[in-house]
Amino acid sequence: MHNDSLELRQFVSSHTVDDRLRQALIDCWVDVTNAGGAAGFPLPPIDDWQAAPALDAILSSLAPDTCRLLVALTEGEVAGWLNLRRDPFALIAHWGTLHHVQTHPRLRGRGIGVALMELAQQVARDEMGLEHLHLAARGGVGLERFYGRLGWKEIGRWPDALRLAPGDDRDEILMILAPL
Protein backbone atom coordinates (compact mmCIF):
# COMPACT_ATOMS: atom_id res chain seq x y z
CA MET A 1 0.00 0.00 0.00
CA HIS A 2 1.37 3.41 -0.92
CA ASN A 3 1.40 6.11 1.72
CA ASP A 4 1.48 9.62 0.24
CA SER A 5 2.01 11.30 3.60
CA LEU A 6 5.09 9.21 4.46
CA GLU A 7 8.29 11.15 5.10
CA LEU A 8 11.57 9.27 5.53
CA ARG A 9 14.46 10.92 7.36
CA GLN A 10 17.87 9.85 8.50
CA PHE A 11 19.97 11.10 11.36
CA VAL A 12 23.75 10.85 11.64
CA SER A 13 24.25 12.94 14.77
CA SER A 14 22.53 13.02 18.14
CA HIS A 15 22.53 16.83 17.91
CA THR A 16 19.92 16.69 15.15
CA VAL A 17 17.42 14.70 17.25
CA ASP A 18 15.44 17.17 19.34
CA ASP A 19 13.64 16.34 22.58
CA ARG A 20 10.25 15.99 20.87
CA LEU A 21 11.56 13.47 18.33
CA ARG A 22 13.53 11.62 21.03
CA GLN A 23 10.34 11.19 23.08
CA ALA A 24 8.37 10.10 20.00
CA LEU A 25 11.00 7.43 19.23
CA ILE A 26 10.82 6.20 22.83
CA ASP A 27 7.00 6.14 22.71
CA CYS A 28 7.07 4.14 19.48
CA TRP A 29 9.54 1.62 20.93
CA VAL A 30 7.43 1.19 24.07
CA ASP A 31 4.22 0.75 22.05
CA VAL A 32 5.83 -1.73 19.62
CA THR A 33 7.34 -3.81 22.42
CA ASN A 34 4.19 -3.80 24.53
CA ALA A 35 2.18 -4.95 21.51
CA GLY A 36 4.48 -7.99 21.26
CA GLY A 37 6.91 -6.59 18.72
CA ALA A 38 10.41 -8.02 18.48
CA ALA A 39 12.37 -4.76 18.52
CA GLY A 40 15.14 -5.34 21.03
CA PHE A 41 13.48 -5.83 24.39
CA PRO A 42 12.82 -9.43 25.38
CA LEU A 43 9.82 -9.15 27.64
CA PRO A 44 6.94 -6.70 27.69
CA PRO A 45 5.76 -4.61 29.28
CA ILE A 46 8.40 -1.93 29.14
CA ASP A 47 8.18 1.78 29.83
CA ASP A 48 10.13 4.96 29.13
CA TRP A 49 12.59 4.16 31.91
CA GLN A 50 13.79 1.09 30.00
CA ALA A 51 13.53 2.45 26.46
CA ALA A 52 15.12 5.88 27.06
CA PRO A 53 18.63 4.69 28.02
CA ALA A 54 18.63 2.19 25.13
CA LEU A 55 17.64 4.92 22.67
CA ASP A 56 20.18 7.34 24.14
CA ALA A 57 22.91 4.74 23.57
CA ILE A 58 21.90 4.54 19.90
CA LEU A 59 21.76 8.33 19.57
CA SER A 60 25.19 8.77 21.18
CA SER A 61 26.73 6.37 18.66
CA LEU A 62 25.32 8.10 15.55
CA ALA A 63 28.00 8.93 12.99
CA PRO A 64 27.88 9.25 9.18
CA ASP A 65 30.25 6.35 8.44
CA THR A 66 29.19 3.90 11.13
CA CYS A 67 25.71 4.41 12.58
CA ARG A 68 22.50 5.93 11.28
CA LEU A 69 18.98 6.28 12.54
CA LEU A 70 16.28 5.99 9.87
CA VAL A 71 12.84 7.31 10.80
CA ALA A 72 9.46 7.14 9.06
CA LEU A 73 7.01 9.94 9.81
CA THR A 74 3.40 10.14 8.74
CA GLU A 75 1.46 13.32 9.35
CA GLY A 76 4.38 14.48 11.50
CA GLU A 77 4.15 11.44 13.80
CA VAL A 78 6.81 8.73 14.20
CA ALA A 79 5.45 5.73 12.31
CA GLY A 80 8.54 3.55 12.63
CA TRP A 81 12.30 3.52 12.77
CA LEU A 82 15.42 1.39 12.61
CA ASN A 83 19.12 1.61 13.36
CA LEU A 84 21.71 0.83 10.66
CA ARG A 85 25.27 0.08 11.86
CA ARG A 86 28.57 -0.73 10.21
CA ASP A 87 30.76 -3.17 12.09
CA PRO A 88 33.94 -1.41 13.31
CA PHE A 89 36.22 -4.41 12.71
CA ALA A 90 38.18 -4.09 9.45
CA LEU A 91 37.57 -7.68 8.34
CA ILE A 92 33.80 -7.16 8.26
CA ALA A 93 33.51 -3.40 7.81
CA HIS A 94 31.85 -3.98 4.42
CA TRP A 95 28.83 -5.42 6.28
CA GLY A 96 26.04 -3.57 7.98
CA THR A 97 23.50 -4.71 10.52
CA LEU A 98 19.92 -3.55 11.02
CA HIS A 99 18.73 -3.24 14.60
CA HIS A 100 15.37 -2.44 16.23
CA VAL A 101 13.34 -2.48 13.00
CA GLN A 102 9.85 -1.38 13.97
CA THR A 103 6.57 0.05 12.75
CA HIS A 104 4.03 1.48 15.16
CA PRO A 105 1.30 -1.15 15.74
CA ARG A 106 -1.60 1.11 14.77
CA LEU A 107 0.11 2.01 11.47
CA ARG A 108 1.06 -1.46 10.25
CA GLY A 109 -0.04 -2.59 6.81
CA ARG A 110 0.57 0.81 5.21
CA GLY A 111 3.97 0.08 3.63
CA ILE A 112 5.98 1.87 6.32
CA GLY A 113 8.18 -1.13 7.13
CA VAL A 114 8.83 -1.74 3.44
CA ALA A 115 9.75 1.93 2.92
CA LEU A 116 12.16 1.87 5.88
CA MET A 117 13.81 -1.33 4.63
CA GLU A 118 14.19 0.09 1.11
CA LEU A 119 15.71 3.27 2.54
CA ALA A 120 18.10 1.22 4.68
CA GLN A 121 19.28 -0.68 1.61
CA GLN A 122 19.79 2.52 -0.39
CA VAL A 123 21.60 4.35 2.43
CA ALA A 124 23.78 1.33 3.19
CA ARG A 125 24.81 0.91 -0.44
CA ASP A 126 24.94 4.46 -1.78
CA GLU A 127 25.95 6.52 1.24
CA MET A 128 27.82 4.15 3.55
CA GLY A 129 29.43 1.98 0.86
CA LEU A 130 28.28 -1.28 2.42
CA GLU A 131 28.05 -4.45 0.37
CA HIS A 132 25.88 -6.67 2.59
CA LEU A 133 23.27 -6.23 5.29
CA HIS A 134 22.28 -8.68 7.95
CA LEU A 135 19.81 -8.88 10.79
CA ALA A 136 18.50 -11.29 13.39
CA ALA A 137 14.75 -11.77 13.65
CA ARG A 138 12.60 -13.46 16.28
CA GLY A 139 11.02 -16.70 15.08
CA GLY A 140 7.35 -17.44 15.47
CA VAL A 141 5.97 -14.08 14.37
CA GLY A 142 6.33 -14.26 10.58
CA LEU A 143 9.21 -11.81 10.25
CA GLU A 144 11.15 -14.12 7.93
CA ARG A 145 8.27 -13.94 5.43
CA PHE A 146 8.21 -10.13 5.60
CA TYR A 147 11.95 -9.85 5.04
CA GLY A 148 11.89 -12.63 2.42
CA ARG A 149 9.45 -10.63 0.30
CA LEU A 150 12.06 -7.85 0.28
CA GLY A 151 14.86 -10.10 -1.00
CA TRP A 152 16.38 -11.16 2.32
CA LYS A 153 17.52 -14.78 2.65
CA GLU A 154 17.54 -16.90 5.77
CA ILE A 155 21.07 -18.17 6.33
CA GLY A 156 20.62 -19.96 9.64
CA ARG A 157 18.86 -20.25 12.94
CA TRP A 158 19.81 -20.49 16.56
CA PRO A 159 17.14 -22.93 17.74
CA ASP A 160 15.31 -21.92 20.92
CA ALA A 161 17.81 -19.10 21.46
CA LEU A 162 15.22 -16.63 22.76
CA ARG A 163 13.28 -17.41 25.92
CA LEU A 164 10.29 -15.11 26.09
CA ALA A 165 8.62 -16.97 28.95
CA PRO A 166 8.84 -20.41 30.52
CA GLY A 167 7.91 -22.83 27.74
CA ASP A 168 8.04 -20.09 25.06
CA ASP A 169 11.43 -20.47 23.41
CA ARG A 170 11.86 -19.03 19.91
CA ASP A 171 14.46 -19.41 17.20
CA GLU A 172 16.67 -16.47 16.35
CA ILE A 173 16.59 -16.28 12.54
CA LEU A 174 19.72 -14.99 10.83
CA MET A 175 19.08 -13.19 7.55
CA ILE A 176 21.19 -11.52 4.87
CA LEU A 177 20.63 -9.14 1.98
CA ALA A 178 23.53 -9.45 -0.42
CA PRO A 179 24.68 -8.00 -2.65
CA LEU A 180 23.11 -4.60 -2.12
Rank of each mutant, 00 (worst) to 15 (best):
G111M: 03
G40L: 12
P45Y: 05
D4K: 01
T66E: 06
P88G: 13
G148C: 08
D169R: 14
L174A: 05
L162P: 02
T74P: 01
A24Q: 06
W152L: 08
A115D: 02
H99S: 13
G76K: 09
P159N: 13
A137I: 05
L164Q: 06
A52H: 04
G76L: 10
C67Q: 11
E154R: 12
P88E: 13
R22M: 09
V141G: 08
V30W: 03
V114T: 15
R108L: 02
L133P: 00
A54F: 04
D65P: 00
R170G: 04
G167M: 12
Q50L: 15
L107E: 07
A54Y: 05
D4L: 00
I176W: 06
E75M: 09
V78A: 05
D65R: 12
L43I: 07
A72C: 01
E77M: 12
G109Y: 04
V30G: 09
L21C: 01
T74V: 11
Q23C: 10
A63Y: 02
D160S: 09
L133E: 04
E118C: 02
L135I: 06
A72S: 05
M175Y: 07
Q121C: 05
A90G: 13
G167K: 11
A35R: 13
H104G: 00
A38R: 02
A165Q: 12
L84F: 14
A93Q: 15
D47W: 06
A137Y: 08
L6Q: 00
A51H: 01
G109D: 02
R125F: 10
V114D: 03
F11M: 10
T97P: 00
A24N: 05
E131I: 07
C67T: 10
G37A: 11
D171G: 11
R145D: 14
A161M: 09
V71R: 07
L91G: 09
G109A: 00
I92Q: 10
W81V: 04
L162W: 01
P44K: 08
L107M: 12
D171E: 14
E172Y: 14
N3R: 00
A54K: 06
G167F: 12
P159W: 10
F89Q: 15
V30D: 07
M128E: 02
L69N: 00
A39Q: 12
M117W: 06
M175N: 03
H2Y: 03
Q50W: 04
V123N: 01
R163W: 05
G113N: 02
G129H: 09
H94Q: 13
V123L: 08
A54R: 11
M175S: 08
A124I: 06
D171M: 13
A35K: 13
L8C: 02
L62I: 00
A72N: 07
W49P: 00
H100Q: 15
L174W: 12
R145F: 09
R163Y: 13
N3M: 03
W81R: 14
L130T: 07
P42K: 12
L6T: 01
S61A: 15
M175V: 07
E75A: 08
H100D: 14
D126N: 12
R149G: 14
D31A: 15
G140T: 08
A115L: 01
W29M: 03
D47R: 08
